[in-house]
Each structure stands twice: as structure tokens, then as C-alpha cells.
Design a protein around this nucleic acid. Sequence first.
DNA 1: TTTTGCTTGATTGTCAGCAATCAGCAAACA
DNA 2: TGTTTGCTGATTGCTGACAATCAAGCAAAA
Lengths: 233, 233
Amino acid sequence: MTKLTSLKSEKRLLDRRAADQIRSHILEGVLPAGERLLETQLSEELEVSRGTVRSALAQLANEGLVQQVAFTRWEVSGTSTVDAWEIYTLRGALEGLGARLAAANVSETDGMRLRAIADDLLHAIREGRFQDATGIDFDLHAAIIELARHERLAEQHRFIVQQVRFHMVQSGFLPNDYEELIAEHKALIEAVIAGDADRAEKLARNHNDAEVKLLAKLLKQGGSAKPIREKAS
Amino acid sequence: MTKLTSLKSEKRLLDRRAADQIRSHILEGVLPAGERLLETQLSEELEVSRGTVRSALAQLANEGLVQQVAFTRWEVSGTSTVDAWEIYTLRGALEGLGARLAAANVSETDGMRLRAIADDLLHAIREGRFQDATGIDFDLHAAIIELARHERLAEQHRFIVQQVRFHMVQSGFLPNDYEELIAEHKALIEAVIAGDADRAEKLARNHNDAEVKLLAKLLKQGGSAKPIREKAS
DNA sequence: TTTTGCTTGATTGTCAGCAATCAGCAAACA
DNA sequence: TGTTTGCTGATTGCTGACAATCAAGCAAAA
């Protein structure tokens, strides 16, 4: 008899699965910013009741992907330049902490794992598979965070990375210097492996600085805080 | 005519208000860790339907105050030493970022406001009103975060501070050296007012270090990860 | 022409009831 | 006597229907 696996993962609550579906539609850009979401329509498409859809939307609102105008409407959130600046600065702080803790915990096998992922990333870029590269990039950062053995940090990180993806989809934001990206990753994981907490933290934080500075500059000159859609106050 | 204020704040949705009530009961220690929460009982006490209670509990679960065992029960979460370590390390990272940004934004009047709050704190401690002092302490940190003009950071900070309160209620955790507390605050706000971002960040992060070190030590020797209540995996 | 008040259709907020699931206990069995 | 199996009461998950609210359009008044 083959080993049995828990059914619990299958038996995810209906509202969670509804949220999963809507979330992936949003993150794939099928539902653009500002798109109105009707509870009845979603409930018909997903073949669940409105209450269940409602619960799903509430979750997505917590994740910042959707916003609610009470008694009136749900809509897909828009990410402005200000939002992007917030997302990247927060990411820097979280990954800084993560890298610091990871450097304190790292083992031999962990180090090999990190190098392997970095290698994957290198190949993806060299072969021009930039879509894959983006995913592997996120994986690498997630792997470092995992080493921190910090559940809350990991959760916040998943959350903020999701917002990064969200922003990238909406704005078409992409890295513009892949060689530098590779070099930065290399330096970061070597610092982690070497157990140099201070350096690892610093590198992790600097890793977002290019984007942050660009965004800060845009904010100063442009001033158009919410180009995509006005946020309800 | 006096300035009119939006009625929207009054017209909070029922589930939010239900969450508010349950939340304050938890944060005041009326509902201790591990306490079972029955949907029907809560719905009777709050005089709302079970669905509304359910929505409220889902919110509190997102905030980490409550946890759900699917198909079985809701219960008040317990905070272990590991949890406390996570909370304080995260707080350090967030307040570090906040202090750094605040130092870059601070104005004359902001500085006066900070000094006024610090003064309140000093008086509360000198007069032995330690309950008040704790509240003012939180206010001071929140005021610094507010200067960062960073909506997401502010939200995460509210969230983590709430967890700090939660842990303090459950464990009876209290500052043990109020003089040092005052000195640290003084140094921090002066660094912010001086616009010294590096120093402000460093001081904000060090501010939690005493607790973090104590907790790390407890973890190493004790090893009892979850003294209050086992977390569902 | 602009403002005000009303009506209406659509949408969200809330409720009460049915279905699915679980923990605990008692009977049956070895 | 210890273990398994089936039942039962209790509790959560989900649904459909009703109530509250809103925006939009139109007509009457200013």
C-alpha cells in the first residue's frame, strides 16, 4: 500500500478556495485595477453562495488586493507610485531582518540550497527566460526568509511579496539590469552563508534601494500620487 | 458653525463593531488564552446573527488574537516565548524603518509634539501611574511612526503593537527599568528631531533589544516553546 | 439653468435555517 | 480488560431570502 496523505489539504474551506481563485485572477492581470467585483456575479461563476464570496472578498481586502466601499461596491485595488514606494521600503526592512536572522541560523545544507537556487536564477537569465527568472528571484528571497525561522516575519514577507507582484503586474515594472541583480544576489547569499549578519542585512536592504530611489524621485517630480485609481479615504 | 464630522465612522458595519467588542475583551484579559469562543453564545450576547459573529472572528484571526480549528472550535490564541520573540524582533525592524523615515520628514511642530508626549510619559512614571505610562509609551511610538507618512508601515505597526499588548496581558510582562526607558525615549526623539536618520533607526531598534535578548535567553535554556497553549499546526 | 426632492433599480448587509463535520461516549467484540 | 466500532449531541460551514442602503435619473421648483 502506498503511503496515504492527509486529506486536510484538499478539504480547504470553500471561502479560502474562492479567495484563491479570485486572487490568482487578480495577480495574473485578468482583473485590472479599478475593476468592479459583483458579489452575485462571482457567486454564480464560482458556484458558491454570496456569503462565501463575501468572506473571500474580505480576505482579499485584508491582503490589499481588493477594497470595499461600504454598501456600494468592491473593486480591485490600484497601486500608485506612493503605494510602490511603501511596498519596496517595507520589503527592505523585512528582508533586512530576515537576512540577519538567516545568517545566524544557516547550516551547510541550507547554503547549498541557496546556491542552487541562485544558479537556477543565473541560467534562467542567461537563457532569456525572464518570466521564470522573476519567479526564481522571489523563491530565493523566500528561501532566505525561511532560514530566519520566524513565522510572523515569513507571513508578512509573503504578504509584501504578493503586493510586489501585484504592483509589477499593474505597472509593467521590471528589473532593468540583470547583471547587477545577479551580483547582488550572489553577495547576499554569500554573506548569509558566511554568517555575517550585519553585512547580510545591509545587502538585503540595499537590494531594494535602486527601486526605492527611482520611486522617490518619481514622487518628487511627478506628484501624481494615484495615477491608476483614487483610493477611498 | 462648528466643523462637521463624517457620520461614516458612526455607521461602522456590524461585524466590525462585533470584532471591536470581542477584541477589547481579549486585550483586557477578560477572555484568557485558550478560552473557547462559541459562535452561538457570542451571537446571543452581542445580539447579532451568527454569520456576523463569524465575520468578526475571522478578522480577529487575521490579527492573531484568535485561532480557528476548522469544523471544531474558535479559541483565544496563546502567546509563547517564541511568539514574544517574534513580536519584539518584528517590532524592532518596523520601528527602525519608521524612525529613519520620521527623521527625514520631521518638522518643528512635530518635534514639539514628540517632546510633549515624552513629558507626559515622564510625569506618569514619576507619579507612579504605570498603567497610564504604558499607554503613553505606545502613543509615543505611534507618533513617531505617524511621521514616517507610510500607510502600510503604520498599519503593520498597529498590528504588531496590538500583539505586544496581547502578550503583556497574558504574561504580565512589564518594563523593569523605567529610568532607562525614559533615557532611551529621550535619545530617540532627539535623534528624530535632529534629522539624524541613521542614529534614529539604531536607537529605535536597540529599544527592543533588552526584551529580545531576555527572550532569546529564555528560549535557549527553557526550550518550552509553547507554555500557554499548543498552537494548531 | 441650477438645485432639490423623489422614485427606482441594483447592490450590499444581515439574518435564520439546513447540511456537514467533529469529539465524546457507550456498546460490542476480542 | 483493553480496543474497536457505531451512535449522538453539539458546533461549525454554507445557503437562500429579506432588509438597508446607495447612485442615478427625472421632474418640479427656484
